[in-house]
């Protein structure tokens, strides 16, 4: 007992500082949630807890319907984009990691070059390309553009990862009579699971929250994603800030829940994706 008291006495400033940091980080979310649970006519301080929980903002939100469609659109676009990034990313990384030639290092350099292009800087080119393909306001247009710009990171990450898998595994499987395709599917792919998990969660969050290309590619309201729908709630007159807060809660909650359950993967993934190979 005494030692615990002693440790606490020595570390008291760490706890004080911790509380301060947590408060600074919770405050915006706290205000958002209390706003969502108050009536529009409730003019009490935004820092004050609601006197009674008012769920009307949420029932109105779902009754109006656009948020449900936005959840569906966002889920479709996020899942498809991440799936393409993972599948094409693993496939592309395999030869780049295993077959080092001058041509392949050129390919590698091109992919890294793509990583440097800020998507909005060539907005005009992308948009006019999509118009000529009749791909604006379609799932596939949005998915394929996002996947193309998102691919270099997974390729870079998977290449780094495959290089850490001993080459003797490939050789052993080929002696046993596997061809390249079989070696890739049976030997390399199972080893890549942790790297795939990292890409799925990091790029998944990125796509869920995407706003930029979706703003221009998805112009029909029935194609709107969550971010586009939320911006409608906030900008259309912007007088029902409580209803808008409820919409923002609905859009954010899935990602927050996912983070709380998969926290260690997010932390590890962020650290891994930053370490140079």
């Amino acid at each position: 007992m005494n030692t615990i008291d002693h440790r606490f006495a020595k570390n008291w400033w760490k706890y004080l500082l911790s509380i301060l940091i947590v408060v600074v980080y919770c405050l915006p979310l706290y205000v958002l949630v209390t706003m969502a649970l108050k009536k529009m006519t409730d003019t009490s301080s935004r820092l004050q807890l609601p006197t009674s929980l008012y769920w009307g903002n949420f029932t109105e939100l779902f009754a109006e319907g656009s948020i449900g469609r936005a959840l569906l659109n966002t889920a479709i676009i996020t899942i498809a984009t991440v799936a393409i990034e993972v599948i094409l990313g693993c496939m592309a990384a395999y030869p780049l990691a295993r077959h080092r030639s001058r041509f392949n290092s050129l390919i590698n350099a091109i992919m890294m070059g793509v990583m440097m292009i800020p998507p909005l800087s060539i907005l005009v080119g992308v948009y006019s390309t999509l118009i000529s393909m009749h791909a604006t306001s379609t799932y596939w247009g949005m998915i394929i553009v996002s996947a193309a710009f998102g691919l270099p990171m997974p390729i870079y990450f998977f290449t780094k990862f495959i290089r850490t898998i001993p080459r003797s595994l490939d050789e052993a499987s080929q002696i046993d009579g596997c061809n390249t395709l079989q070696t890739f599917f049976y030997i390399i792919l199972p080893q890549l699971k942790p790297a795939i998990a990292t890409i799925v969660i990091l790029n998944g969050v990125g796509m869920w929250n995407e706003y930029g290309y979706s703003l221009y590619i998805l112009q029909k309201p029935e194609m709107y994603t969550l971010t586009l729908t939320i911006s409608q709630y906030f900008s259309s007159g912007a007088n029902n800030l409580n209803g808008a807060a409820a919409a923002a809660c609905v859009a954010t909650l899935p990602m927050i829940l996912m983070f709380l359950f998969l926290q260690k993967y997010f932390i590890k993934g962020t650290a891994d994706s930053a370490v140079k190979g």
């Binding site: 980080y25 915006p28 979310l29 969050v205 869920w208 929250n209 995407e210 706003y211 969550l226 971010t227 939320i230 911006s231 923002a248 859009a251 954010t252 990602m255 927050i256 996912m258 983070f259 926290q263 997010f266 932390i267 962020t270």
Partner: peptide, 10 residues
């Protein structure tokens, strides 16, 4: 780390 999960727009 939590705010990283929230869209910049929101």
């Amino acid at each position: 780390y939590l705010p990283v999960m929230i869209a910049g727009l929101i």
